[in-house]
Design a binder for these strands. Structure first.
Lengths: 162, 162
DNA sequence: TTTAGCTTTGCTATAGTATAATATATCTAT
DNA sequence: ATAGATATATTATACTATAGCAAAGCTAAA
């Protein structure tokens, strides 16, 4: 069932299955919640999932309109907002872009590793990072609400290929 | 000498001294490096330091032009770029905004705590967070280059005042 | 002290990201 | 079938950022 990849996509990553799995999970999750995954929203999710690299809103819009449609920016932004609310995608703040969530429904605090070469993102959920942030916050006199942890660098595949 | 505050500004924070100290440190650091802290760049640094909250580029521009000047966006962006290069300010990715660096010259990896109420930012340099990120990166197969750690929440002062 | 080369600033235009506001359409539950 | 709520369409505009080139200023060597 869960064939969404967790770390960086390997050499034999079956991305068609990956997308399919993400969409299936989204359908299930929305049904459970009574949220309406309309064709438009579903289409945007599918587009975001076309790769493991963060996609800009206007890039998504271009893909939506590739067949001659005339969707305007608010349309894609509203769809993205819905997908964010339901934890189906993440916003990558340091890129002004969006990426599919690998663990929809468990939308706790995540960290993102973003390869500067291939652009792919790996999502982790490290307790250790979360705890370290909490400890530092306490020392600083701060109550954590929304941690943004986005690490740029290189994935091993790109490093090895260099 | 170093009167730049490290955590959130307290009730009796002397901000005039805080700005002065930041500018002094900048002058010293640029002299050491042979970098040219021109009046324009110095002015932008001063504006960024007017508060402990991240300031947008266009807000800085407005302040620069408050006396009727006609500086254009590239001018402020170039000054900000210079200040970033020399570690005198930080860019807060999640806000598209800039804040003074509290430890210029030691421009290692920093973490930022950003209060959603007062907007103030505290800068920390937690080894623990850095190590936790490194460990998670290793498990994920990733080489860290530029970690972005920006935590939104509330500072204790705002929490207590509520 | 003049000139050549480099750095900085000025200026215009444009690209890229995001949302306000209002109108229309669609869905859901009675 | 209809009322109320939700979703989509459309236009306009705000906000963020950079490309490209011209002019001015600085620095160092002759």
């Amino acid at each position: 069932m869960t064939s969404i990849i967790k770390n960086f996509p390997g050499r034999h990553h079956d991305h068609a299955a990956c997308i399919e799995s993400a969409l299936e999970q989204a359908v299930t999750l929305c049904r459970e919640r009574g949220a309406r995954l309309t064709p438009l929203r579903r289409r945007v999710l599918e587009i975001v999932w076309e790769s493991h690299a963060p996609l800009g809103a206007y890039d998504a819009l271009q893909r939506m309109n590739a067949g001659g449609e005339r969707n305007a920016p608010p349309t894609v932004y509203r769809a993205l907002e819905f997908l964010l609310e339901h934890g189906l995608i993440h916003r990558i703040e340091s890129r002004n872009a969006f990426v599919g969530c690998t663990t929809p429904g468990n939308s706790h605090k995540a960290q993102f590793f973003i390869c500067r070469d291939c652009g792919n993102v790996a999502e982790t959920h490290s307790e250790e990072i979360g705890e370290a942030i909490k400890a530092s916050a306490t020392r600083t006199g701060f109550l954590v609400e929304k941690p943004v942890v986005e690490i740029s660098g290189r994935c091993l595949k790109c490093h090895d290929d260099e």
